[in-house]
């Protein structure tokens, strides 16, 4: 038994195609009010590149490879941590007029009452 993942040619294309489609559909449902957190949130998601950076660094042999691998991890970690920090902060600020989850019509009624 071996657990090595190998993806060649069409398998890779299928994965990329399905993932792209999933992204398009999921993001298409996000309301405009959340577009900034969404952008920084998806920004955070591509911070997974840090894992690739770690892989490259662990397999580095020459000082040159080590240096570039170090930069890859440094930048990738910055991407992930920074993206998370700002997204989490922004999302924590969205509140409704009453404490319950958003239901626009109920809310407006509530506002008019006062």
């Amino acid at each position: 038994m071996h657990l090595d993942i190998t993806m060649t040619g069409f398998v890779a294309l299928y994965i990329l195609m399905l993932a792209g489609f999933a992204g398009w559909v999921i993001i298409g449902n996000v309301p405009a009010i959340l577009h900034t957190p969404l952008m920084s949130g998806s920004n955070f998601v591509h911070g997974i590149v840090v894992v690739g950076g770690l892989f490259a660094l662990f397999n580095a042999v020459t000082p040159q490879e080590q240096a570039i691998g170090f930069i890859a991890v440094l930048l990738g970690a910055g991407n992930a941590a920074g993206g998370y920090a700002v997204t989490d902060r922004m999302l924590a600020m969205f509140k409704t007029s009453d404490a319950k989850p958003a239901r626009r019509h109920a809310q407006i009624h509530h506002l008019k009452k006062g």
Binding site: I15, A19, I27, G28, V45, H46, I48, G52
Partner: peptide
């Protein structure tokens, strides 16, 4: 996102490919 997805293929790491492409498509839509 696209770059991460492509490097995911280079490294044979599906998590990178999926995350990268999702963000690539999301960014395109936005």
């Amino acid at each position: 996102g696209l770059a991460v997805g492509l490097e995911g293929f280079t490294l044979q790491n599906p998590a990178l490919m999926i995350a990268g492409m999702v963000v690539g498509a999301a960014g395109l839509l936005l």
